[in-house]
Amino acid sequence: MQLVCPAGNLPALQAAVDAGADAVYAGLRDQTNARAFPGLNFGDEELRQGIAYAHARGARVYLALNTYPDSARLAQWQAAVDKAAGLGCDAVIVAEMAVLDYAARAHPALPRHLSVQGSATTAPALRYMHERFGIARAVLPRVLSIQQVERLCESAPVPLEVFAFGSLCIMVEGRCQLSSYVTGASPNRHGVCSPAGFVRWEEHADGRRSVRLNRVLIDRFEPAEPAGYPTVCKGRYAVGGETFHALEEPASLNTLELLPRLARAGVAALKIEGRQRGAAYVASVTRTWREALDRYRAAPAQWRPRPGWQSALARHAEGRQTTLGPYHRRWH
């Protein structure tokens, strides 16, 4: 299984490659990718350097072009595909049909991966993208149980990549408008979720804190209570007279213990989430997964998740909590 790691900037890309990533994925400094955060991503020259650095060390670079352009901006996404081809990216990760279609026609030799944002959860959906646009790989949305992933590996027309670690979207990727309902800015259209410009923290006299997104109260914290980033899905709300994390509590996905099952199922690649995280996160998480994968390859029958790996990963988890998420039926 290939290890695919996030690169929000050049130092993170280098850290991922040095720590043993088989491939890194990166985005341009605009809204063509789903982590269009200020201070993140690559200009042309950095991307050129990053590709040279990775290729010199046998690693691949995938360019994420995984947002949904409206008609007026389609040309910008097409230009980004041209750029990926021109700079020598090893694949583009695309969600949207018109961009896939353009890439297939203009640069047929540039492999096209279907992004998680493409929301393809079944074999027919994958066959559609394969037959129509010749995708070479698909990244699965984080909604399927491990049994469903195993079955899909058997019936899918292309190799599959699954999320192994990182922040967890609980909604089907590409089908969540909670951010735009509150702020007008969305993952699909703008490459952002609950953007920082709309976040307002309020300190109260008693030491408590409130956090609002575009004036909507997302959560309130006791003085010593850890407070996470206020995405709409991770707030606390009142439902039926009780106040709780009605959609999801802050936690990160960690599938390390499923590694043998994913390998046996024939999953082609494991993806680490976190282009918005720094080089230290990328280095540590990549190193841990590299070691786990290498140990598995060397002796699959003896493989057990080591406590050291799990604690290294937990340190980087949201709220220091990890979950098997949707892979585990009980989560649903």
């Binding site: 949904y68 352009p69 409206d70 008609s71 389609l74 969600a95 949207e96 049909m97 018109a98 279609d101 353009y102 493409g118 929301s119 393809a120 959860t121 079944t122 027919p124 959906a125 066959r127 559609y128 993208m129 037959e131 590409g174 089908r175 699909n188 259209r189």
Partner: peptide, 29 residues
């Protein structure tokens, strides 16, 4: 309402309505 349905309709020649969860954002798509 998802790509699975699009694929099945396409294969069987069944006319379809693109539902609101299908993610069509531009004229080319």
């Amino acid at each position: 309402n998802d790509l699975s349905a699009v694929q099945l309709c396409r294969l069987r020649g069944v006319p379809f309505v693109g539902g609101p969860s299908l993610n069509v954002y531009n004229h080319r798509a």
